[in-house]
Design a protein around this nucleic acid. Sequence first.
RNA 1: GAUCCCGUAGCUCAGCUGGCAGAGCAUCUGACUUUUAAUCAGAGGGUCCCAGGUUCGAACCCUGGCGGGAUCACCA
Length: 526
Amino acid sequence: MSRDYTEQELRRREERAELEAAGIDAYPHSWSVTHRSASLIASFTDEEHQPGEENGPAPLRVSVAGRMMSRRIMGKASFFHLQDAEGLIQVYVRRDDLPEGFYNTVFKRLLDIGDIVGIEGFVFRTRMGEVSVHAERLVLLAKALRPLPVVKEQDGQVYNEVTDKEFRYRQRYVDLVVNPKVRETFRKRARMITGIRSFLDEKGYLEVETPALQPVYGGAAARPFTTHHNALDMPLFLRIADELYLKRLIVGGLDGVYEIAKDFRNEGLSRFHNPEFTMMELYVAYRDYDWMMDLVEELVEHVATLLNGMPVVQFGDHEISFKRPWKRIPMFEAIQERTGHDLYGLSREELARIGKELGLEIDSSMGSGKIIDEIFGEFVEPNLIQPTFITDYPVELSPLAKRHRTTPGLVERFEAIIGGKEICNAFSELNDPDDQRSRFEAQDRLHAAGDDEAMAIDEDYLRALEYGMPPTAGLGVGIDRLAMLMTDSHSIRDVILFPLLRPEATEDPEATEDTAETEGPGAPGQ
RNA sequence: GAUCCCGUAGCUCAGCUGGCAGAGCAUCUGACUUUUAAUCAGAGGGUCCCAGGUUCGAACCCUGGCGGGAUCACCA
């Protein structure tokens, strides 16, 4: 398989050949690093480290490694910037400090922006005040055969910034190299997840793993991905939620369990939806949804503070404060506040009439719960920017939630809405096996009527409930959406390293159809 | 799935009413031993997303397709 190389790629391949002809390995095996850029720069002080003065401090010798990101060649001396995991550090190279011929031939002619190099030398501050490494040894660690987009920056102004979304998502490795903000976003995401995990561990909850391949899928309303197990010759579904397995563990006596895992939903893509996404689910025995609201506030305030030093983030034009306590409003009250209509207890016909009056399209397949949800989603949710708990949902929307202790027709459920989007969903868990069975049966009728997102009856789950599940509070948090809020990202693709895209056209037009069909794994195309 | 916008050099982008394909960075050659978007002099580099159509002539207009983005629908 070959393709036409560009002029610059050909040039780099020639350079590699020349390097190898000169006995220089273009891909050596290792390099020992003693320092990283940002922390090295931060630790440098003129009094302790700046060499040159008589009786001055001894030079600080270091070994660093990274990618050459820019080059300023001035005759017999040069500067370049080296980028490592922490950031950039400038390197100073002089012809006369390197072996005979190395500077002119290897450094100036055979190395390029994008190459990965190792530097041994001493640290100093230049006349212009930049802490830099004066190279005494320079070793190629990996030759870059493709040219990297060259992005320049001066006083915060970025030139030739790589902005093409498709390029950035398809070649995230390049995006990470050239866009520092992207590296910061994913560091923050990682710190957020670590923060959630240690918060939950500290409370004594047990992190568990439940099946991603499930014979019966459930726990949410969504279409699944289906697959097949050959040896058992059975269909399997990729999980759409962890819920029913985690609650089996509550039955089993593990009083508090959580899982941070990928869920898979075979549905459309959007700014807020990726077919695989990360969910954190938590179940705690002997608790209810009121208690869980307190926990969510505490958790999110804690994580936001961990990431930003304070429980406040800038999100687009809004400053969002996660400081406890958050507003709590029953769903019907919130709808009445925004639309003037009290929907509680109304018949389906009355709800449909109000929906239409409000300008929504209501069709005959929509049940009462669905209409209420539409009205909520249209008039309430987008206006909830500051963290708000919406509580007490209609029972028909929530087949796994426990009935409200005082208000008929509702369940004890809440969602936290932040920035106009649902961030988590929680309830007092339904633990009456007979009620659960009848809810499943209602779902099953919907399914039979053509709703392919309705839940299936999970007999094993019902069996577990029949053994007795303690009162339990359950929570699901959309980790990607929380990461969006914490990093001021406005598309889920900006917080998922490799979001799903359509397969791109193969680079080699000859490698299409005829070969793709006959080749085994790894063949491009579908 | 619908609507709108976008697709030009390795990257960022210009390209007027249809008339020779452009700039900066990157690359190459030369100068330069503390520069920092280094600078200076020169050179090379194009399937204008793809396929048709209109026209004397298409990057530009028309039709269809591919890919991306945004909004909507869907997604409790």
